[in-house]
Amino acid sequence: MFMKQQVACELCGRHCLLTFHHLIPKKMHRRSFFRSHYSKAELQNGVMLCVTCHKTIHRFYDEMTLAKRFNTLYALQADEKIQSYLVWVKKQKIQ
C-alpha cells in the first residue's frame, strides 16, 4: 500500500513515499500461535516504512523471525543489523 504524500519513514526518518509494514507479517496471522496470543487488532499493527527499509527488513529476516523477535518498532530499531543498515541508508539519496 503506497501513500501519496511524502512523510518520514518510521525507521530511517527520510521523507519519501511509504509502504505499510505489518509488524507481525500477514503470512503468520493464520497460524494458531499468533491467533491465540494476539488480538485481530494487534495482528494488524504496523509501521509506515520507505520501500528501501521495508525491502531490507524482509531481506534480513524471514517472516517467523519478524513475527516473534521484531514485532515492535523498538525491537527493529534495537537490532544491530538494522542499526548498521540505518547508518548507511541515511547517507543515501532518495530516488
Rank of each mutant, 00 (worst) to 15 (best):
M3H: 03
M3C: 01
M3Y: 04
K4Y: 08
Q6M: 13
V7F: 10
E10W: 06
L11A: 10
C12H: 00
G13F: 02
G13Q: 02
G13P: 01
R14G: 05
H15C: 13
C16W: 05
L17I: 13
L18D: 01
T19H: 09
F20C: 04
H21G: 02
H22C: 09
P25N: 06
P25F: 00
K26D: 11
K26H: 09
K27W: 01
M28T: 03
M28E: 15
H29G: 06
H29Q: 06
R30F: 04
S32R: 14
F33C: 07
F33Q: 13
R35P: 06
S36E: 15
S36T: 13
H37W: 00
H37N: 15
H37C: 06
Y38T: 05
Y38N: 12
Y38C: 01
Y38P: 08
Y38R: 07
A41Q: 13
L43D: 05
L43N: 05
Q44H: 10
Q44S: 13
Q44K: 13
N45G: 08
G46C: 12
V47K: 05
M48E: 06
L49W: 00
V51T: 11
V51G: 02
V51P: 02
V51A: 07
T52D: 04
H54K: 03
H54G: 06
H54Y: 03
H54I: 07
T56Y: 04
T56P: 01
R59P: 00
R59H: 07
F60G: 03
F60T: 03
Y61M: 11
Y61K: 14
Y61P: 03
D62L: 05
D62Y: 04
D62M: 04
T65N: 06
A67D: 06
A67G: 14
K68W: 03
R69M: 09
L73P: 03
Y74S: 13
Y74N: 14
Y74A: 14
L76T: 09
L76V: 12
Q77W: 00
Q77I: 04
Q77A: 05
A78M: 14
A78E: 15
D79S: 11
I82M: 15
Q83P: 06
Q83G: 12
Q83E: 15
S84P: 00
Y85R: 01
Y85I: 11
Y85L: 10
V87R: 14
V87H: 12
W88Q: 14
K90C: 10
K91E: 14
Q92M: 14
Q92F: 08
Q92E: 15
K93R: 12
